[in-house]
């Protein structure tokens, strides 16, 4: 139990954060695209994420919650290290969550203000998350490289969200807006590729142990599918983006391929990290909470997680298809 429980929780935390990046990624992406659209399109874009954004954001609370439940020592260290980006991210999330409602409820004279707040909040939250991810990958290092790297990721993670966001809009919208979403995706794909490459190159450089895990035989061969699928998906995205959308063509390709990259990238990251919860500093067993506390929560996870997944699927089924006009009744 003392061996397996931390592993189970590490997997659950990784899964929650992966689901967060995909789900809140697309709605943060849509938020950052808002200024590029006209008034009517803004309403359609917001209607396309309306029923989902709240539950999407809950996944980060679950991810941080698991960090807290299972690895309380690491929770304190990570979050007090990331104090500033966490604060900025929270302010961004607050601003956009509120702007979502206030842009239609505070009166027409305030609409522009809240549209801008929605954009700014989405951008601030995305950039801060990139900063957090970058700092985490460097093992919370405070050297110059350790400070420059998060900056680069802060500038490129939003590109991933933009790609997810435009992929989402291609599925959920029609006509002009759909065509423009494709153009937005074309602009986002290159910076997103740069960010992906940076993360892939940086993680082995951070610690020789990680480099050893990847670049020794036979590990290298077993692991080859991860970079290969990632690179293949990226090339496939480039191909999808090279052509225009035509009626009858499948619209989920861009979103699906971007999700696939998220999945393989996080698998690679998980392999690099394991068994550390903070790279080079603390393993999951060193940071683990008591067996009693972990078992108590595991019962709850086992009961509620299938239900959560069940009604998440129900919600997505109820609201499947193209987003219509925005209505709040």
């Amino acid at each position: 139990m003392e061996f397996w429980l931390p592993i189970i929780y590490m997997a659950a935390m990784g899964l929650a954060l992966l689901i967060y990046v995909i789900l809140d990624g697309y709605d943060l992406g849509v938020g950052m695209l808002i200024p590029l659209a006209d008034e009517r399109e803004k309403d359609v874009m917001i209607a396309s994420i309306g029923p989902f954004w709240d539950a999407n954001e809950t996944w980060i609370v679950l991810g941080v919650g698991i960090l807290l439940i299972a690895f309380p020592t690491a929770h304190g260290i990570v979050l007090s290290h990331l104090y500033l980006p966490v604060t900025f991210m929270l302010m961004g999330l607050i601003l956009r969550g509120v702007a979502f409602d206030l842009r239609v409820k505070a009166g027409d004279h305030r609409r522009r203000l809240w549209n801008n707040a929605f954009f700014a909040g989405s951008l601030i939250a995305s950039v801060s998350q990139g900063w957090m991810l970058g700092a985490y990958i460097t093992g919370l290092s405070t050297t110059v490289a350790g400070l420059l790297f998060p900056l680069l990721i802060a500038l490129t993670l939003p590109a991933l969200y933009l790609l997810l966001g435009s992929g989402w809009l291609i599925m959920k919208t029609e006509g002009d807006l759909q065509a423009r979403s494709l153009d937005w995706a074309r602009a986002a794909v290159l910076p997103m590729g740069v960010g992906l490459l940076l993360v892939s190159v940086a993680t082995p450089l951070v610690s020789p142990a990680i480099a050893g895990k990847w670049f020794s035989l036979p590990n290298f061969l077993y692991l080859a599918p991860i970079p290969l699928i990632t690179a293949g998906s990226y090339l496939a995205i480039l191909r999808v983006l090279a052509r225009d959308l035509r009626p009858g063509r499948a619209e989920w390709h861009l979103f699906g391929l971007t999700v696939l990259i998220c999945v393989t990238a996080s698998l690679g990251l998980a392999y690099s990290l394991f068994p550390d919860v903070i790279i080079g500093r603390m393993t999951i067993w060193e940071a683990s909470a008591s067996v009693n506390a972990l078992l108590f929560t595991l019962v709850g996870v086992a009961m509620t997680l299938p239900m959560i997944i069940g009604y998440t699927v129900i919600v997505y089924r109820i609201f499947h298809g193209k987003a219509g006009e925005l209505r709040y009744d």
Binding site: D54, A55, E57, T58, V61, L62, G65, I66, L68, I69, A70, P72, T73, H75, A289, S290, N292, A293, F296, T297, G300, V301, T304, L305, I308, Y311, T312, I314, V315
Partner: peptide
């Protein structure tokens, strides 16, 4: 954390997702 973690965890798992969805 042995007390705070699980209680907050149960709140997220049983309540937050339910109300948000």
């Amino acid at each position: 954390g042995n007390v705070a973690g699980p209680l907050l965890g149960y709140e997220v798992l049983s309540a937050f997702f339910l109300e948000a969805s």
